[in-house]
Simulated scan of single mutants.
Amino acid sequence: MPWDLAFFGTGTDVYHIVQWFFIYSILGWIVETIYMSICGRRFVNRGFIFGPICPIYGFGALIAYFLLRPLADNLVLLYLAGGIMATAWEFLVAKVMMAVFGEVWWDYSEKPFNYKGILCLESSVAWGFYVLILFTFLHKFVMFLSDLYPYQTGCILGGVLMVYYLVDFTVHLCKAKFPEVPDKARRIKNKFVSFCRN
């Protein structure tokens, strides 16, 4: 893995992009799981995969950070741009999920000023504040976390997490797209075992 290469003109190397992505994805999973578990009064795993990773937060945070850096000194513009951009990101992810899975994993239908249950004014307002939090202290905290462990440990951890995430995501994607496959596989296995016994 070319860890030291600059990542597409961001001025940041691949190593830190990968570390930040997983830290944001895990933090997003923790916050959303806690919030939804409190609301539902039972444990709710908000991740698509088995592991504690919500990649929408990893991608969203990094996209916001790199695109909105020029506005970092103007909090009003940063808030407005952050709210608009995060809402557009949420809309895009919802459209992709509808195309791939036939459903969206959130529903704002009960919220006022919602659009088809996938966007709502409350969330757009909140996204703006999240972007302010990202720039005022959260990204500094994420950078601090990513520099806590040795570089070699980060390389190994990043590589293992990427492989784990891709395998886990692929398994869940196949289960969601082809729910009949496990039953077919079980039937084939049973026929094979029965054939071997005879």
Rank of each mutant, 00 (worst) to 15 (best):
G158C: 05
V160W: 05
F43S: 13
K95A: 09
K191C: 14
M97K: 08
Y115F: 14
G158I: 06
V160T: 09
R42K: 15
P150F: 10
T153P: 09
A81I: 04
P70V: 11
D13A: 07
T170M: 13
Q152P: 13
F135G: 01
W29L: 06
A86N: 01
S194V: 14
V163K: 08
L78S: 02
P150M: 08
M97A: 08
K140M: 08
I23R: 09
S194C: 11
E122P: 04
W29S: 07
C54L: 09
F141I: 09
N45H: 10
C155A: 10
F22E: 07
Y164I: 13
G82C: 02
S37C: 12
N74V: 06
I133P: 04
D147E: 13
H172W: 07
T33F: 07
M162F: 12
G83Q: 04
S25C: 10
I133R: 05
L78Y: 01
K184T: 12
A61Q: 02
R187T: 14
F135W: 03
Y24K: 00
C39I: 15
L161K: 09
E103F: 07
V18T: 13
S109H: 15
S194F: 10
Y35D: 00
S123G: 09
L145F: 03
S146M: 11
F129L: 11
G82S: 03
F7M: 09
A72M: 04
D168K: 11
W3A: 02
A72D: 03
L67R: 02
L161F: 12
Y151D: 07
T136W: 13
L68Y: 01
F137L: 12
A86G: 02
T33R: 09
F169R: 14
S146L: 05
F192C: 08
F137K: 08
T170E: 06
F192P: 00
N74M: 05
D183E: 12
C196R: 11
G117E: 00
M143G: 11
V171C: 11
A185M: 10
T87G: 02
R42D: 07
K191G: 11
A126I: 14
E122T: 15
W89F: 15
G117A: 05
C39K: 11
D73N: 09
F192H: 04
I63R: 01
K191Y: 10
Y65G: 01
A64K: 00
P55D: 02
Y149K: 08
L157S: 08
V163L: 15
R197G: 07
F135K: 01
K189S: 04
V131S: 00
K116P: 06
N45C: 11
Y65R: 07
S146K: 13
F8Q: 04
V142A: 05
K177C: 09
G9M: 09
A6L: 14
T136P: 08
N45K: 14
P150Q: 08
G82W: 00
L148D: 07
P179W: 06
D13F: 09
W3L: 02
F141G: 04
S146F: 03
I23D: 03
M36F: 12
H16I: 03
E90W: 01
Y108L: 06
I34R: 05
C174K: 09
G82Q: 01
D73W: 05
